[in-house]
Design a protein around this nucleic acid. Sequence first.
DNA 1: GTCTATATCCAGATAGAC
DNA 2: GTCTATCTGGATATAGAC
Lengths: 185, 185
Amino acid sequence: MEQIRQEALRQFATKGLFATKIKDIADALGIAQGLIYHYYQSKEDIYVELIGNALDKMNSGVSMLQAMDLRPHEKIRAAIEQFFYTIETSEDYIQTSRLIAQAANSVAIPEEARALIEEKRDMPYQAMAKIMVEGQREGTIIDGDPNELAIMFWASVSGLAVYKATRTNVQKIPDAQLLIRLSLK
Amino acid sequence: MEQIRQEALRQFATKGLFATKIKDIADALGIAQGLIYHYYQSKEDIYVELIGNALDKMNSGVSMLQAMDLRPHEKIRAAIEQFFYTIETSEDYIQTSRLIAQAANSVAIPEEARALIEEKRDMPYQAMAKIMVEGQREGTIIDGDPNELAIMFWASVSGLAVYKATRTNVQKIPDAQLLIRLSLK
DNA sequence: GTCTATATCCAGATAGAC
DNA sequence: GTCTATCTGGATATAGAC
């Protein structure tokens, strides 16, 4: 069950929902194709579950960040550093963000998956906008619409994640200092 | 023929290669499904042609930028402004970048398409790195590895493009000034 | 050039034995 | 729980008439 999830994540993240065949997953695990249907009712069911997990994982990271006892500009530094660390060390994180990127960029995903994305994907933006506001009050974050700052922040972060994910042999991704320049005074 | 290309681009960009059915394209154009095969040998053929066109379009934009009679930091401003303008006005540009994003993020695309991407996608990074070097010599671009600066630049730009492409009702995307802060002194 | 009809294949899902 | 076998639908691609 957990193995099915893992293998499905790996394949959905790299190939997408439609190019991934149930047989591919079964073969990779060395089990019969029919056995998958003992655990899941359909391919879409696996997909929807994974999308939900992925969004929750992303959002819980953001929640933890919010709860940290740090000043706003320190939270941004922490977020960036955590991001750079995770992207270098966690295969699972890369697959997770890749899955979300694939899903968000496709209109041909199950209704339920779409609903989950719609419901959950704005959380990081709102949380970051709040941090920006607080930082502006303290004078450590640059002026400007906090929502736009938040969008710019996550757009850059996810752009980097995609860059990293789609190059097999990336030696180095840019230094965290560059990202910090985006919003900090 | 041109209509097939256009409709196929629209659908591949939003749904990907595998979720797009030949019949979907034919139906959208009001022609018979079989007729597509009068113009193209296979679905993959259409896809590969579109990928090639998309990459060329992107790269020709960059080439034009390079050829402009501007100082390096002005080129960066120009690139950002052109980008913001195009993303707001050109449906075709959004589809084009979405197609490339989809393709680059999937391992399940035709061999030929993969080869095209491998061959052509680094051009913008190299061109931008060169501009960064020149700007650093002039003192208008911040210090740091020019390759990393270039990666950061395009990661942010493409992150924004994806953000914009995947929200139907985006009112505003961040101001160009924010992006400029990334690299200019 | 465009259509209808169809051959062929493949993948999702089910049935039922062990 | 796991397998093999199979039903069923759908999609690519082809054939051939108009």
